[in-house]
Each structure stands twice: as structure tokens, then as C-alpha cells.
Design a protein around this nucleic acid. Structure first.
Lengths: 339, 339
DNA sequence: CTGAAAGCGCTTACAG
DNA sequence: CTGAAAGCGCTTACAG
């Protein structure tokens, strides 16, 4: 590799100063049109590579936004990430991604890295057990935070998520309307706001329907496809088995349906099943999955917008914005009532 | 937020020089034990945040490794990423992730960003159509590249991937052994090494079995769950319909099986199906998916190891390492032969 | 419209 | 074992 090309290399080659070159490359109107063109040509010819570390050290703006969620492979986050990426791209911000897998230490080390890199902002779905102080730390060090999907009490920052309690209510109301009186809820944990709110929505819907909740109907824990699969075995052993299962997420529901099939039962025929999120796969699954659309692309877009607005100088807000979910009725909630 | 704490803040507070503080924080034996401890305490108390941009500008080492693949949500990459992450974590390297979605412009802009940030290395699954020069550019600018999953002719860098031709042969041989003589191949594209090699493996297996290939058996294109689903409709219209389908990937196979079910056929009973990758979901699917394990965690681990070795000064190698895949027989390849 | 000079916060020879 | 000083490659007032 040749000697490294820097601003001064270009400046020297044209007999200009680095100041002029720097301004020209960033399209400053202070530099004469002709000069600007000559400079840009030279930069291209010399294979100049802009050194962002140097620039960022000087300006204390890095153009980096961190995004940290528990599982980037979950299609639910996929959609959020896609819309976050769209917004950030538009503002020429680089986004760097982290998977914390609900591991607090991992989340902390990522936040540390962002601080060390002088990142401009953080979009975070906080790991289970995140204390408010873990969110105030970056805020106090000039790293603005926007929460998505989950929120943290007392964090004092803006958050965007679906109205989980209302959404779960939609699913359970639907099952009740179809005639079900014994309805289980599969998956989720009280350790996250999502889990708590969806469970609250489930319990409230039972109460609205005048159904008395039975503890064995609530199978806590599963949050991915595999544990949804395992939960089917547990479900099938419930005394006076429920005729319907409202699942914490589509992934859990899809795994749960695999589990039912494995046990020789037909989801949507022998057991009614609902999911949550309306991921792409829901519509093509066997049977098509009845679910609740969670507005994930709106969550992603608005979180990114809000963060960019703060970078542009808007003051911080301490508020949680709830996106209203919608029921998507599909065959998995059908059920053959015994005559 | 208070005034920013930097090395000199600590130095001043203790009446030392920044040189000593810098050395102490990085555990240099040059600094006396006692002094080191005093410095570390002070750093903690003052809430010091290490400025990596400044350090990196000085040392021209950033501690950043870029990882860029076409689809981070594909579970196949999930496993690769997990093992890459493990290796890099161990060396305290930060990894930043990019989804190029097979968009060359996007891939280029990510490589640019890495160059600007002074990244130490890049692990890349090259986008469709990546010219060798796009890989030599970073190499020539001190950004070593290691390829995964796909390779590029003439790129001159180290690559790790499964032996796709051999692996697809395993699947098709298995179908042949079960008695199938009309076998389709669903998905993949000749635009990637993976697609070309798996197709070659399919064709070679047919030839080994003395089966004459018919063009209508080859449904090119699908590379995700949704297009696998759509391909089922196409498949079902093939004249003298095949009794088995070897799919390009597990995602394609799982979508394809959904598509068969939607059309009222039973995958694994009416049509034998195989996948490729052996993702987690394969074992719990309905029916369990017969597939080829692709050694993805080995690919990820070895690619990361190789990159780290280069960062440690080892010379570049121009070689493609093939990991040997293994067949995983499961029920989706069963088939009810008409008596 | 262009240039000379200072400074962002580190690390690294070098000196003592 | 510790300190003074230069320099990484930019950008930004300031001067002309």
C-alpha cells in the first residue's frame, strides 16, 4: 500500500491549504466552484479516504448511532431495525448493532463502547433487569437514549412500544367471541414490561368475559420458537385442558403449533391458537396464524425520528408512546366444536 | 453534565503527568503498583470515559471489526455471527454489523465507513455481483478481509464456507436411495457461489444415479421462506410432477412445506422434501426437516480466528477452506410410495 | 475566496 | 519509575 493520503497530501498536490481542501470536500460555499471541483478530482485520483476519527475528535460528532436489542434474529426486531436503518441512512448516520441477549453485562459493555467511540445516540430495547441508572449514565454523558419495545420505570427518556395490554385483549376477546371459555396464555415473563402488559391484557379480557382465571392456564417463560415448541407438552397436560392458547409472540405460537402437531393434534382444529406481532411468516404458516399486528415499523421509524430530532437539538422528553395494535384474524383461531 | 473528564483531568488531580496516567490505565508494568491503583481509583471516581477516537487516531488501531452479510435475520447467519462474536469478544474487539441485502452500493458504503473509522478488519459474505476489486480495495487500504459463506474469484483473500456441492449431493443421494427418480431443486441462484455449487451437486447426484435431468425440475430464485412458499405453486404445476424436492436452504424448504400444506398436500408424505443448513427450527418443524448440516459455527469461528491471526501480523492467504457438511435424516424425506 | 495556527485527547519515544 | 513534548488528521475561528 502506498503512503497514506490525507488532506495535506491533496493540499500539497494542488498548492492549497488543508483548510481550503477540508471545506471544499464538505461542499462549503466558501470555496470557489472551480477550486472545489479541482480538489474533489484530486481527492478521487489520489484515493483519499476521509478519516472520521480525526474529524470526530475535532468536532465531537461521530455520526454513529448504536442500536441494541435482545435478539436481532427475531423477525419482530427485523422490521424495527429496517425502519430505523431507513431513517438513519437518510441522515448519513452509521448504525452499529448489538445483541444483548438479555445479558446486562453485555448491554453495559456496548454502552461503554458507544461512549468511548463518542456515539451520537442509542436506540435500546433494554435487557431484563435494566435499572434506570443504566439509562441515565449514557444520558448524562451526552449520549441520548430512545427506548423501543420495552420501557424502564424512572429512566426519564422517550420510549416507543405497542399497547401490549390492549393488543393481548384483542386476541383474547376474539377467542372468547368464538366461544372459548378455557384459554391459556403461553410465554412471556413478568420481568419485562411487554410480558407484564400482555399478561394484564389477557387477565383483563378473561375478567370482561366473566371467566375465572386458573393459574395452570398461565405457562410463563417461552419467548422463542423452541421454547414455544416445548410448551406444547406442558399445555397438553393441563387438567381439563383449555381449548385455546393465546401466545406471547408469533415465534412462540409457531413453535407451539409445531409442538401440537408433534403430539398429533391439529392447531386451529383441535386447539385454537393466536400469536402476537404479525411477522411475515404468520400469513403463510400452516395453519395461517391469527395474530396481533404490533406496529413494529412505526415503532422503529418513530424512535429513529425522535432520536434524530434530539441530535438536532430538540430537548429530551420523558414519555412512553403507545402504538395501537390491530387484530389479524386467520385460521389458527378456528376450532371444531364437538357437536 | 459536568466538564468532560480526560487523562489530564486525572493527571492534574493527582499531580502526575498524562503519560503516567495513560500507562497506568493500560496496566503498564512501567508504573509503580501503588501509583497505578491511585490512578485507577481516581479515574473511577471522576467518571472517566476513555476516548477511543483519540487513542485510535494516535495508534491507528481501532479495535473495530466489521461484519457484513446479506441477511442477519437468516438463522444460518445467526449461528455464524454468534461464533464470530465469541471470538472477537475474547480479543476485546467491537464488531459492527451490516446487512447489505445483496445490494452492492450498500456493501460499498459499509466498507467505506469501515475505512473511515479505521476498522481493523472485515468479515464479509459478499453481495451478489461483488467484483474482486471491491475486495482488493479494502485490502489495499490496510483493512484485511475474510470471506464467509460465499467466495469471489480472484479476490485473493481467505474464505471459509461449506462444501456446497458435496453437501447437496448428500441430500440428493439420500432421495435417490429412497427410490425417487424425479427430483426437483428449489431455490438458489447462479449469481452466487453457493447457488452454483449446490446446483452442481444436485446435477452431479442425478448423473451418478443415471437420472436424466429435466429443466422444469429446476426452480431457481427462492432464497427465503416466503419465496419458498410461493415456489410450491410452481412446483405443483410441473408436468409429470417430481416426487421429491431438494431445497436450497432450510428457510426455502420450510416455506415450501408451508406452500405444499396450503395446497392440501402433506410434506414428507405426498412429497419428500430436504433442506440445507440444519437451523434450529429444522428439528422441531412439522414434519421434522431432513437437511444438511453446514458447519456454520465452524465457519464463523474459523473466519474470526483467521482474521484475528492476520491482525496479529500473520500474512494474508489466498485460499478457500471448505467445511465438510453432514446429512441429517428426518421425516420430511419420508414418502408414501403408492403400492 | 484562501491560508496559518491552534487544538480535539490520546500514545509514544526519549530523557532523566 | 515519572515527565515534557511531539504528533495522529482533521476543523474552526481568525486574519488577510
Amino acid at each position: 500500500m502506498a503512503q497514506k493520503v490525507k488532506l495535506s497530501t491533496i493540499a500539497d498536490s494542488l498548492g492549497l491549504s488543508t483548510a481550503t481542501v477540508s471545506l471544499a470536500l464538505r461542499d462549503s460555499p466558501l470555496v470557489a466552484e472551480v477550486t472545489r471541483e479541482r480538489i474533489k478530482c484530486a481527492a478521487r485520483d489520489l484515493g483519499y479516504i476521509y478519516n472520521r476519527r480525526a474529524a470526530s475528535l475535532r468536532t465531537s460528532r461521530s455520526g454513529i448511532v448504536g442500536v441494541c436489542v435482545h435478539d436481532i434474529m427475531n423477525p419482530f426486531f427485523g422490521e424495527i431495525l429496517k425502519s430505523v436503518e431507513n431513517e438513519l441512512d437518510r441522515q448519513r448516520q452509521t448504525f452499529i448493532l448489538c445483541n444483548h441477549h438479555d445479558d446486562l453485562a453485555k448491554q453495559r459493555s456496548f454502552v461503554d463502547t458507544l461512549l468511548q467511540l463518542g456515539a451520537d445516540g442509542l436506540i435500546l430495547s433494554p435487557a431484563i433487569g435494566t435499572p434506570a441508572s443504566d439509562i441515565r449514565l449514557p444520558e448524562e454523558n451526552d449520549l441520548p437514549v430512545t427506548l423501543i419495545a420495552r420501557t424502564v420505570e424512572g429512566s426519564g427518556v422517550l420510549g416507543f412500544r405497542g399497547d401490549d395490554s390492549y393488543g393481548m385483549g384483542l386476541a383474547v376477546d376474539h377467542l372468547v367471541a368464538l366461544g372459548h371459555r378455557r384459554i391459556a396464555m403461553i410465554g412471556g415473563t413478568a420481568l419485562t414490561s411487554t410480558g407484564r402488559d400482555r399478561e394484564a391484557g389477557y387477565l383483563a379480557a378473561l375478567e370482561r368475559a366473566g371467566i375465572e382465571f386458573r393459574p395452570e392456564w398461565r405457562i410463563e417463560g417461552p419467548r422463542n420458537r423452541h421454547s414455544g415448541f416445548d410448551a406444547a407438552a406442558t399445555f397438553l397436560q393441563i387438567d381439563n385442558r383449555p381449548t385455546a392458547a393465546a401466545c406471547f409472540s408469533d415465534l412462540v405460537a409457531l413453535g407451539f403449533m409445531y409442538g401440537l402437531s408433534r403430539a398429533g393434534l391439529r392447531p386451529g382444529v383441535d386447539i385454537a391458537v393466536t400469536g402476537y406481532d404479525d411477522i411475515d411468516e404468520a400469513a403463510i404458516a400452516t395453519p395461517p396464524l391469527c395474530t396481533v399486528s404490533n406496529g413494529q415499523s412505526e415503532v422503529g421509524r418513530r424512535a429513529a425520528e425522535a432520536l434524530l430530532a434530539r441530535l438536532a437539538g430538540q430537548p429530551a422528553a420523558d414519555e412512553t408512546i403507545l402504538i395501537t395494535p390491530e387484530l389479524r384474524v386467520r385460521q389458527s383461531s378456528d376450532y371444531n366444536w364437538p357437536d
